[in-house]
Amino acid sequence: MNIFRFAGDMTHLLSIIVLLLKINATKSCAGVSLKTQELYLLVFVTRYLDLLYSYISLYNTFMKLFFICSSGCVIWYIREHKTVSQTYDSAQDTFRVLFLACPCMILALTVNHDFTVTEVLWTFSIYLEAVAILPQLVLLQRTKNVDTLTGNYVFLLGGYRALYLLNWIYRILTEPGYRQWIVWISGTIQTAIYCDFFYYYIKSWRNNERLSLPS
């Protein structure tokens, strides 16, 4: 594991901690998309099925369990928590997730390495992760004056993807025969989706203003 991959994972971990902190400290999930969180839970559950039959390292196992549990925890807060659930604005969070999940499943059934249940589900999770942030970005666009922690959460999530790009470049240069086209192409699309957000995030940060995305 190289430094970019590790930094990427830590940024991913931090983004989730920031999100949980925001929800727990403010007892509010304003500006957080339940749809995106549910998509992430689906991504993690379909990707980490290998927890049941393959072991890579204690690090990997811990991170996989953390990602599954933490997204489950965020969903629980938004849906079930007495005070937090009242701050969820379902009227704004209207993205049709089936429009994302169905094409990803069709693509996973068509373009994959191996036509087995676990491999197709793994491929599905790679495709779905690439677009799972879209409901969150749409919600941010509808929210005037995004609160700082929610903005930081999305920024860290995007940062994690950018670090994974560097990780792949490093691996291409140092590991002979290393290639994974499905992951590279999906990951590049996933990172590109954040470009617009990055632009406005950095602009608002430099001008010392609250973040608000133009609609």
């Binding site: 991959r5 994972d9 991913h12 290998d50 393959s54 890579i56 990997n60 991170m63 996989k64 990602f67 390495h113 191996d114 491999e119 793994w122 994974y164 990780n167 290393y178 994974q180 992951v183």
Partner: peptide, 10 residues
């Protein structure tokens, strides 16, 4: 082996 390597990332 190839397939296994591809799944070493999170």
């Amino acid at each position: 082996q190839d397939l296994h390597d591809e799944h070493d990332e999170l």
